[in-house]
Amino acid sequence: MTDAMHISASLEDYIEAIFHIVKEKQAAKPRDLAERMKVAGSSVTGALRMLADKALINYTPYDIITLTPAGKAYAEDVVRRHEVLRDFFVNVLAVDYKAADEAACGMEHSVSKVILERLVRFAEFVEVSPCGGKDWISGFRSHCEKAPALKMSELKPGDKGVIVAVNSQGEIAQRLVDMGMVKGTPFKVLRKAPLGDPLEIQIRGFLLALRKQEAECVSVEKKAGK
């Protein structure tokens, strides 16, 4: 997504703001946006046009603004970068929340996917092995090589794994959690449906079917052995 489309930092800020407003109020108005970004109405219009040209938002003048599916995915990506950086600053570097948030705001546009994943893994690593020592950094290296973060949808029939997190919000996340998908729960992928989707897993002693689309929201760790 990021490679296919180059979007300037300020446009990324706009799309991030729209994402937050839409989340709160279902749809955004240019006025909300101007207020939130603390800019003039005219510059908002310009930015909105550019975003609409790239098919990231649905926008016609004097109407409400909503995100297209592509726009939503893009915004989620930006928001995630923002949150990962901020949490890293707060939890690992012990920066206070407000300062961390501001710094994250500036850095989120330039940091690449690889670096981002490493920051997440590092924060995890600090939690699982808090003891220091000279092997610590090489320990981190092997931690990174050991188990790359996987999505449940990437597993094959017969694979076993453990749930790491449900990366979604709203109804889907709630359903998945209600069905028992919480951190640390072991499961096994049994099969795919004859047409290739959905897939069937065994979890908490029962059989559950879910679409690839839903399985993509679940990050897992693969367990060795069949």
Binding site: E171, I172, R175, L176, M179, P198, E200, F206, L207, L208, A209, L210, R211, Q213, E214
Partner: peptide, 9 residues
């Protein structure tokens, strides 16, 4: 609606 469905025994 998401497809998250139990396949009962």
């Amino acid at each position: 609606e998401p497809f998250v469905m139990e396949l009962p025994v």
